[in-house]
């Protein structure tokens, strides 16, 4: 519960996963394709992760591996991880991966995340500190949330340094100083 107030964590858990119901459920409107408020056994429904996780603990459903961790994405990441647009697939790719790995029980997701991050990290490192802002805006479009924070940390510290080096006014006049004092009597 240490991340209860973490907005990123909340958004991560909103990510939908496709699940197959193992038990029938009535009185719930989570299956938009069904006409009644009744979910049959074996029906395939997209639910947010937080719900899927709870339902799975009660063994009501089985969770499928989400599309952003399927074989096709894996092959793309193995081929050239730096160019894969992970943001459009899942902006919280790594956080979601950590969560889904234990739910789905897929050990290989951990490896996938690590190897993807390792190679994409190098790309972020070289681009963040050197390239100009305009040239890299296209690159930053394909980064996930976590990579973006890394990228922006590097860029802003570099930008702050460059600003300092270029100079400019060393002392900023406090806004209070300019004002005239009101007479108190």
């Amino acid at each position: 519960m240490e991340k209860y107030y973490d907005i990123d964590d909340i958004i991560t858990e909103e990510e939908t996963v496709s699940v197959i119901f193992q038990k029938a459920a009535s009185g719930v409107g989570i299956d938009p394709s069904s006409e009644t408020d009744f979910v049959e056994v074996g029906s395939k429904v997209e639910v947010p992760f937080w719900l899927a996780h709870e339902l799975q603990l009660r063994q009501a459903i089985s969770v499928n591996v989400p599309t952003c961790f399927n074989q096709k994405t894996r092959l793309e990441i193995q081929a050239d991880s730096a160019c894969v647009d992970l943001r459009s697939r899942c902006p919280y790719f790594y956080e979601f991966g950590c969560k889904i790995a234990s739910t789905v029980g897929d050990r290989t997701i951990g490896f996938l995340l690590l190897s993807a991050f390792k190679s994409r990290y190098k790309e972020v490192l070289t681009k963040a500190h050197t390239a100009a802002l305009t040239a890299t805006s296209r690159f930053s479009m394909i980064l996930t949330k976590e990579e973006t924070s890394l990228y922006e940390a590097a860029q802003s510290s570099m930008a702050a340094f460059k600003k300092w080096r270029m100079g400019g006014p060393r002392f900023q006049r406090a806004s209070v100083l300019g004002r005239k004092r009101k007479s108190t009597d």
Partner: peptide, 17 residues
């Protein structure tokens, strides 16, 4: 000082994954 924020976050991410 320039690389400090980047290194901190990168190490954290590697630790997590």
């Amino acid at each position: 000082n320039i690389v400090r924020p980047f290194i901190g976050r990168a190490l954290q991410a590697f630790f997590k994954h």
